[in-house]
Structure formats: C-alpha cells, structure tokens
C-alpha cells in the first residue's frame, strides 16, 4: 500500500509533503499515547492518532514512521505542521474514528491478500 492509497481509503487529506505520496506504507500503529507508539518496532509505518501536538511528529521521526494520520476530524497544531515540514514527514487529516480507519485498512488488506492468492 502506498501513502496515496491510505489517504484515499481513510477519506483523508494530505496537508504536508504530498510529493511523498508514492512511498510505501509497510505497517500501521494506532494510539493516543506516545509512549505506546514508542514501543512499536516496525519501520515505515503509518502513525495514526487523535493527538494534534508537535510531539506526534517527534515520535514519528524517532521511530521511523513514514507518515502521520490525525484522526477524528481534528486539526493539527501549527507547531506540528511546521515540524512535519522541516522533518519531511507527510501529515494526513482524516474525519474517521480510529477504529473506522483501521477497519477500512484491514478490509482493504484482506482484499489485496485475496487477489494476490488468485
């Protein structure tokens, strides 16, 4: 899955670094607690959260996330957008709840796996 696909699936809007939309997303982590995300061990993952402050970008940078998704229709704080820009981390806004976003991604992954088997 590419970042562009993710944006489409979760009805998102990419507000920073749209030039990176063709990069791959290898995994997903969803949490409203940064310490929880800091325990995640995969690289190139989409960090999905309801938090809006600049520390989500720091956490993404430290854990090698490929993009950050702010859920529940929330708006990022200005500092978060600036930091995303300076670290070149795509920032995506989505109106969906965390579960709804994950479940759509899960179903899409299921479809992709099914078509790969055929």
């Amino acid at each position: 899955m590419k970042i562009a696909d993710l944006v489409e699936i979760i009805e998102g809007e990419i507000v920073c670094c749209p030039e990176k939309a063709q990069e791959p997303v290898r995994d997903f982590a969803a949490s409203d607690l940064l310490s929880d995300i800091l325990t995640f061990e995969k690289d190139h993952y989409a960090l999905m959260t309801g938090l809006t402050n600049a520390q989500i970008i720091r956490t993404a940078e430290i854990t090698n996330a490929c993009c950050v998704v702010i859920l529940r229709g929330k708006q990022p704080q200005q500092a978060a957008v600036q930091l995303a820009q300076s670290h070149q981390i795509p920032l995506i806004l989505s109106p969906l709840s965390m579960f709804e976003a994950c479940s759509r991604l899960g179903r899409r992954q299921g479809q992709e796996e099914a078509s790969a088997r055929e």
Binding site: L33, L34, S35, D36, N53
Partner: peptide, 11 residues
C-alpha cells in the same frame, strides 16, 4: 498531550 501513561521508565 499523549504523555504520562506511566510507560516511560519501563520503555
């Protein structure tokens, strides 16, 4: 703000 979950030290 997403902190203070009490996971810092164990992390």
């Amino acid at each position: 703000l997403g902190f203070g979950a009490g996971m810092g030290l164990s992390n």
